[in-house]
Design a protein around this nucleic acid. Sequence first.
DNA 1: TAAATAAGTTGATAAATGTCAATTTTATAC
DNA 2: GTATAAAATTGACATTTATCAACTTATTTA
Lengths: 269, 269
Amino acid sequence: MTEMELAAYRKKTRQSKVVDILTTKVACKECSLHQLCLPSSIDGTDLEKLDRIIERKRPLKRNEHLFQVGSKFSAIYVVRSGSLKTYSPTVDGQEQVTGFHLPGELLGLDAIGKGQHPCAAKALETTSICEVPFENLEHLTQELPTLQHQLLRLMSKEIYDDQELMLLLGKKTAEARLSAFLLSISLRFKQRGFSSTEFYLSMSRNDIANYLGLAVETVSRMFTRFQEDGIINAERKHILINDRKAMQQIAGMNNCCEEVASGDTQKSV
Amino acid sequence: MTEMELAAYRKKTRQSKVVDILTTKVACKECSLHQLCLPSSIDGTDLEKLDRIIERKRPLKRNEHLFQVGSKFSAIYVVRSGSLKTYSPTVDGQEQVTGFHLPGELLGLDAIGKGQHPCAAKALETTSICEVPFENLEHLTQELPTLQHQLLRLMSKEIYDDQELMLLLGKKTAEARLSAFLLSISLRFKQRGFSSTEFYLSMSRNDIANYLGLAVETVSRMFTRFQEDGIINAERKHILINDRKAMQQIAGMNNCCEEVASGDTQKSV
DNA sequence: TAAATAAGTTGATAAATGTCAATTTTATAC
DNA sequence: GTATAAAATTGACATTTATCAACTTATTTA
């Protein structure tokens, strides 16, 4: 890619739909709730019942909280558009980012057990949310076995995905972590019908570093290295993935993060 | 501690009940299923119903598998006595240990989503297991809202615990990881009514290192260091925790792994 | 019981990543 | 629009941990 082409690309990504994809409403069929209600032949009436208990909240502005640490658990949330990060305070007064949540993904499943949120959720940009009051949901699952099954599946998926991430954090080098992170984001966009090669990272380098257990400087250097090697083009938060195969090699995962088996979407490297 | 006292202690731990605690049957009230059925005032009839669907399997010998990677998911398992590790194969042909499972803890929750086990489970010693066929359990939860609630709580707890571990793996130094690991094991024994200061580690140093994302040598050195500093006494797999406060400091978690809020037990640093 | 194998420990060295500091670029506020 | 603050990048250096190799101690098998 020449400098001119690059400049043109940069200009394009600044304006194009790549950007406002994240501020666009997500249709229900691309949403996690789709997995939660539709797939196993749930019929119209049941879907309507589910729809009835869901509340649409006013959009959050950037840096607004959806919930705080320790706040009472009362609902599960689904991202309609925009994105959030979840984070916990650590002993030394720092915060530890525990996840990023893109359109169609759930938040709050980790709070059911204790009845209060173990982490806080903050919008990374203008973000709109569906709220699913948990008590109502629980009642409804009693009525609708399919819904219950879906809920269990989603929670299981979350456990599974967390374990995948543990593998990553436990073993890998800095470049493997970042590569796996980008592939994960890419896959999640793809699963929602967006481009998997060209997307916008709403979180800061700092958040990424924190999440991956690395220093900001290391993350920055890895971005630079990937760019130098021609594997990605990173114009600030706009990412273009040039060589997916190479990234899979680096991430040490030739098998996964490419095609995911079932109709599951969800969650968070 | 003098050399003589140490020798006496070592002799004692070799014989005492510390060892056979793990081979003793765990009463139902110390078991995870207790959380799953009893706590929210489930009555005798309901408990009986649950008890009826549970199958007790013959004990596994050391190194026998409870399930293999990719095997069909049909049941959740509870450890009655003994212990297991779960692990996944990685691209480079290695295995990655994803968890250790002590008496009263669950296995298999990560398999619900895909319908097959993403990891294998292998006994670390002679181990007996309760099998809870999942289909039956799901049906039963339709009948017993309390049971459903408990199941959701347990799964949520698993998600929460995994996230705790992610923090550990993502951020901490080698000594913080090992310290947190030992504290976690300690707490889990305590929650089951065993000693929290004196216990037997059924897993190898290799497994620990693998699990914590460290080299065996590093783990070995950390054990040595802790011992030199008088924080623990480690006679091979017999561990005596001398200075819990110091370990919490090292682990960077003065708050957690000491007293856990609710009646939850479960799961796995 | 001895031999063979596996697990664990220790030391020396190299590689990876964190830390500190300086600088540039971008975003925000007035 | 300019000033100010925040975020990102880059370089130099220190620290941590992995790797390789040798060796010791347990455990298993014949």
